[in-house]
Simulated assay, not measured.
Amino acid sequence: MNLRYGMNPHQQTATATPIDPGTRPLRVVRGEPSYINILDAAGAWQLVREAATALGRPVAASFKHVSPAGAATAGPLDAVTAATYQLDPAATGAVTGAYARARDADPKSSYGDFVAVSEPVDEELADLLRRVVSDGIVAPGYEPGVVASLAAKKGGRFLVVEADAAFEPPAVEAREVYGLRLTQPRDGVPLTRELLTDPRLPAAAVDDLLLGLVVVRHTQSNSVAYVRDGMALGIGAGQQSRVDCTRLAGAKADTWWLRRHPSVQASSARIQDRVAEQLRRAGDVPDPAAWLRALDRVAFVSDGALPFADNVEEAARHGVRYIAEPGDSIRSAAVQQECDRRGITLVRTGIRLFRH
């Protein structure tokens, strides 16, 4: 397919061509994608498809610049999320709820996102999408009338992409960079609950860690994710220092929790204005340290081995009680000791999940 432009508007012309002419992994139903739109659609779809298969329930993701800003399974909407997106918690469907939870983890970063859901899009989700600022969506299908209802969004430039749910990517992947072609086997190592077998882990923590593993697999490295109740509350991507990544993602998790303080109210009519109002008021929460100490039961996943105990110290500041990481760093013993000292359950998966 012809693309609107490459990574930047001056990179003309750009195309996307199936490796196997007989397949079409993604089909543009409406709109004209750019190079980055296709990268976001492909990356976001792989995340929700893999997570939904691993966890057995609908998953949504909010993608920005080829990394997720948020990801979540279907689950209950808390009062803040329901009020922010003007949804009825008792009546909202699973797919719409999953996206609202995914977007609300970091709504500032999700502004202008590319949406992905693991299930067909219904009119309820389409109604929410019409009310938020986003660039497009990828899904395995669309109920009748939904594409037409989204067509007017962004002056007709909203992208609607359909993923072939049955498509299996090639076993070998290639990338051309500066006159070189790099090839490698596709990273298809299964991420399952069996990687997280530890009798100290509650079932909910196992699922949160599993969601975190899928999230960091599809996030630019270095990457970490804080996950709670099926929602990635803070995702750090593309940092050269892992502890800086841990701090960045932890600050996002803190902001999510501060927005849930009883003093943080928002009355604006438009969703993004309501989010902006919440973010401003979250900075004025009385005694924020006391409120943040109440954040608990958070799971933390790292795509690479934790090289120093400072990552554990930082994660513990954001309510982390469970950590999954590959292990096998030269200071793994010190990392384990710090987890033991803080009452954090550490699971070593033996699998690194770098993405560059």
Results as ranks from 00 to 15, higher is better:
residue 2 N to M: 10
residue 6 G to H: 07
residue 8 N to D: 12
residue 10 H to C: 10
residue 11 Q to I: 11
residue 19 I to E: 13
residue 32 E to C: 10
residue 44 A to I: 00
residue 44 A to S: 10
residue 47 L to R: 05
residue 48 V to F: 06
residue 48 V to L: 08
residue 50 E to P: 12
residue 51 A to L: 03
residue 51 A to C: 02
residue 51 A to H: 01
residue 56 G to F: 01
residue 59 V to W: 09
residue 60 A to R: 02
residue 66 V to A: 14
residue 66 V to L: 12
residue 68 P to Y: 02
residue 71 A to F: 10
residue 73 T to A: 11
residue 74 A to Q: 10
residue 78 D to S: 05
residue 80 V to T: 13
residue 80 V to Q: 11
residue 83 A to C: 09
residue 86 Q to D: 15
residue 86 Q to T: 14
residue 87 L to H: 00
residue 87 L to F: 04
residue 106 D to T: 13
residue 109 S to E: 15
residue 113 D to F: 10
residue 115 V to W: 00
residue 118 S to Y: 02
residue 120 P to C: 06
residue 127 D to G: 15
residue 130 R to I: 09
residue 134 S to H: 07
residue 146 V to E: 04
residue 147 V to Q: 07
residue 152 A to N: 12
residue 160 V to L: 00
residue 161 V to T: 09
residue 162 E to D: 00
residue 168 E to T: 14
residue 181 R to T: 11
residue 190 P to I: 11
residue 192 T to Q: 06
residue 200 R to W: 04
residue 200 R to E: 14
residue 201 L to I: 01
residue 202 P to I: 02
residue 205 A to L: 02
residue 206 V to G: 03
residue 217 R to A: 11
residue 226 Y to M: 02
residue 227 V to S: 02
residue 250 G to A: 06
residue 252 K to W: 11
residue 253 A to L: 09
residue 257 W to S: 02
residue 257 W to L: 08
residue 257 W to V: 10
residue 258 L to E: 05
residue 260 R to T: 03
residue 264 V to S: 04
residue 264 V to Y: 01
residue 265 Q to A: 15
residue 269 A to E: 15
residue 276 A to F: 12
residue 277 E to W: 04
residue 278 Q to R: 13
residue 281 R to L: 15
residue 286 P to N: 01
residue 291 W to P: 05
residue 295 L to V: 07
residue 295 L to H: 11
residue 295 L to K: 11
residue 296 D to G: 06
residue 304 G to T: 15
residue 307 P to F: 09
residue 310 D to A: 14
residue 316 A to I: 01
residue 316 A to S: 12
residue 317 R to W: 08
residue 317 R to V: 07
residue 318 H to C: 08
residue 323 I to G: 04
residue 324 A to T: 03
residue 324 A to D: 03
residue 330 I to Y: 13
residue 333 A to C: 08
residue 335 V to L: 08
residue 341 R to T: 10
residue 342 R to D: 06
residue 348 R to P: 05
